[in-house]
Design a protein around this nucleic acid. Sequence first.
RNA 1: GCGCUCGUAGCUCAGCUGGAUAGAGCACUACCCUCCGAAGGUAGGGGUCGAAGGUUCGAAUCCUUUCGAGCGCGCCA
Length: 563
Amino acid sequence: MNPTITKPQPLPHDDALATFAATLQEAIGAVYPDAPQSAIAFEAPRNPQFGDFATNAAFSLTRIAKRSPQDIASALVAAVLERRPELRESFAEITPTAGFINLRIAPAIWQAVTARVLSDGAKFGEFAARNMRISLEFGSANPTGPLVVVQGRTCSLGATLANAMRYCGYDVFVEWIINDAGGQLDTLGRSLYARYRQIFDPAFPMPEEGYPGDYLPPIAQSIADNDADRWVNAPEDEWLPYFSKTGRDTLVAEQRETVQRFGVGYDLWQSEKELHDTGKIKAGLERLKEAGHTYEQDDALFFKATEFGDDKDRVLVRRDGRPTYFANDVAYHYEKLKRADKVVDILGPDHHGYIGRLKGLAEALGYSRSHLDVMIAQQITLVRGNEIVSMSKRAGHIVTLDDIIDEVGVDAARFFFVMLAPESPLTFDLELAKEQSNENPVYYVQYGHARIASVFKNADAGDVEAARTASLEPLTNPAEIALARRLAELPRVVENVVENLAPHRLTRYARDIATDFHQFYHECRVLVDDRNLRFARLGLCLATQTILARTLSLMGVSAPESM
RNA sequence: GCGCUCGUAGCUCAGCUGGAUAGAGCACUACCCUCCGAAGGUAGGGGUCGAAGGUUCGAAUCCUUUCGAGCGCGCCA
């Protein structure tokens, strides 16, 4: 994703930083008139002793100022405070250290952010609509079998990303492409037909390269239940279309069920065959032809992919007139590029070599390369403890996404599949995923949420209600401030997830919230006698619960009241 | 051979587009429940960020080279 200029609703600490940045700009202009104007950037220091935010503005002035960064930083801090002494109210510390200017936000500001969480609820931090349409495609599979583990990962990543994009104000359109246009539909039809014939004659052979999985016999059986033996003696040109279509329709329906069960929603299930039937494939090819990016050779139509960085030209239409898989992609991406400001594909590990070709394609179709982003989800190794779970398709014992959900549940599966950076290969430990212990990160996070709910059960109902609007001024303990500060990060974290196509950062954030909460819980008793303090802490708990639940909901993971 | 991705603690991995003493979980060691859920918290040991150069105030991060691992390179989909 390209960084975009839209900002979330500014929060109190954003305002404080903006004021500081503006004042710092003025100070730089006054002290070093020759300095080039450049934006003041803040980052969170790794080490909390340096404060909440730091800017390295002094470093870029060393050349002009001909002084050490530390001297420059000191001079700038003095100048800033002279211009706007009231900044001391927003910042507990403004300290030049080793050339950095370190800032610590005042507790009152964090209290104000927490109050905002309480008033905004689940909508906290959401960006205003930015009138930008994103087409997001993921999961897409051949309609020739059940969804498998890799779709679990692409769907988890994709759905999380879609949620994050919506949070950031994008108009997201989620699509699935059904690969029902190629020769695999014939194979499916023949395999299903063989299963059907086997009902009447167990010795009937499966076709070479057929699909051996145990998901076809039930479909064959239902055909036999409806039609009895009417297809046994039918000619191939009658039974093949019927068995292909029936298999395809049934399997797509099952895939949709699985995806829905997994908590992933789609706006469009696009049939590739339909793109053919409605002339879209042709339109895409025409576009490339008109732009002069094709040529004919050996009676086949080629795309000049080498002109766009690919290592060889690619066939679009075969000698026999049938379009290739890539031609379908040309058409479909042309469609998507036309109707979206941004197109993002999440593909499986076997599509590595494809990414450059697709970007080149976008360019050839008259769009910029950055109009299209491709995210590759690396492969998954299924493991049960120390034992590798075989997923050999050839041997017929495939592990389906439904199997995984049955075994570990939706929450653990969704969390584990997004936990790692997409480009990192994932080892999915089924035993760990269903283990209800401290080794399991899902439970650690959910436990935090349940623990808060438990505090509320022990509190007077009236207190919890009153806490929604109570003064948060009593929150001054470092653990309380650290937690409040963490809650304030949500908008930035989600924005970062979208801009870097990095959904896994959400899981880390969820763990960070849980950690900060557990520390707070250990440090500060919530239900104390002091009424004001009790209300304030209940308010902090409410805010934490809100942010934790929201973060989990972005990932499609539930936030249980008890467990 | 060409291309993509990855090499960070014993293991599994983060590292926010170049920042300060490289982090987390697990495992290991030692602690913490008369009190809101111990599915929790605290402390400790453990690293030449695969290697070598380069860019600059500053590199795990960017560039080049190199070693190692995985994957992809059909008129299959």
